[in-house]
């Protein structure tokens, strides 16, 4: 009988184990391949791409495509490179993540520790908003942003991302706080702490893990968004939209190496966050499967 320890592993023979490693290895290659292709081809001269093998390492190494993608490539009609759009994305992501996370934390706190009649319905309505196809709000959102004078501006995008991010952040914090003992809140109440004091002194100090999750989730989601950026970006388009414009531009020769460099630039911040704090991210995704 196989000794079952921490996983559901079963006893297997040599042949089976070899097979397992081969399959796992092949899939590892499958996931790595596109990144590898983008990587090597972003440091090749264009001629080597069109004339040579996509898999081959560069014969001449060059950082020129990266420089071009960053500061000189033609985006739309201006030869600005991706730099200004990168900045737009940063300006959009930081406040949107901060605001939606703070609101989510407060909402989760109220929905678990200050329950009231109908709180489940309120939460259900907030939760469903995570899953709507955003096409259903595009038209009225465009009108409202126009009316508010926020169309095509970074604050407009911040607002949109906060509105449609609250559902997720609330979900995370609510699930996290639900397993936080209510007796602690009651003890603090008897000790004389008020609503905000309890939040600040008792809840927040233990909210580190879920805050990491919420921030990473919101950061990747908002950074990677394309639909809202393309619809409401106007002159303040984020990185994803600019990358798409760069890649899809029909004028001139297709500078594949520049496109690849641009794609990696667009992916870098989220990849970085993922590498630094990926373990928490996975845990957060688990919490995302709506468990009370």
């Amino acid at each position: 009988m196989a000794a079952v320890t921490q996983d559901t592993a079963v006893s297997t023979g040599r042949v089976t184990r070899t097979f397992l490693y081969v399959v796992l290895g092949v899939f590892a290659l499958f996931y790595l391949l596109p990144l590898y292709v983008m990587g090597v081809n972003s440091v090749k001269p264009l001629a080597e791409i069109t004339g040579g093998n996509m898999m081959a390492l560069p014969r001449v190494w060059t950082l020129e495509p990266w420089r071009a993608a960053w500061s000189t490539a033609q985006i739309g009609i201006e030869p600005t490179g991706l730099r200004p759009y990168f900045l737009n994305s940063i300006l959009m992501v930081v406040p949107a993540v901060a605001i939606s996370t703070v609101l989510g934390a407060l909402n989760g706190y109220v929905l678990t520790k200050w329950r009231f009649r109908g709180d489940t319905i309120v939460f259900g309505l907030m939760l469903f908003s995570c899953f709507i196809p955003f096409q259903i709000v595009l038209i009225p959102m465009a009108l409202v942003l126009g009316k508010l004078g926020l169309a095509g501006s970074v604050p407009g995008l911040v607002m949109v991302h906060v509105v449609y991010g609250i559902g997720f952040t609330t979900l995370y914090y609510r699930n996290y706080y639900a397993s936080f003992p209510t007796e602690l809140v009651r003890a603090a109440m008897m000790d004389g702490a008020g609503f905000f004091q309890i939040f600040w002194r008792i809840m927040l100090p233990v909210s580190g893990p879920i805050t990491v999750v919420s921030v990473i989730w919101q950061f990747t989601n908002i950074w990677n968004d394309f639909l809202f950026g393309a619809s409401f970006g106007g002159t303040s388009q984020p990185m994803t939209v600019a990358l798409n414009n760069l890649v899809q531009s029909s004028t001139g020769v297709k500078e594949y190496n520049v496109h690849f460099a641009g794609a990696i630039l667009a992916a870098l911040p989220t990849l970085f966050v993922y590498i630094v704090a990926g373990r928490y991210f996975v845990r957060g995704l688990m919490a995302g499967s709506v468990k009370g």
Partner: peptide, 15 residues
Amino acid sequence: YLYPMALSFIVTGTA
């Protein structure tokens, strides 16, 4: 296996 989750669909599509 997981890192593609961190990428934008635009990057995935381009690649």
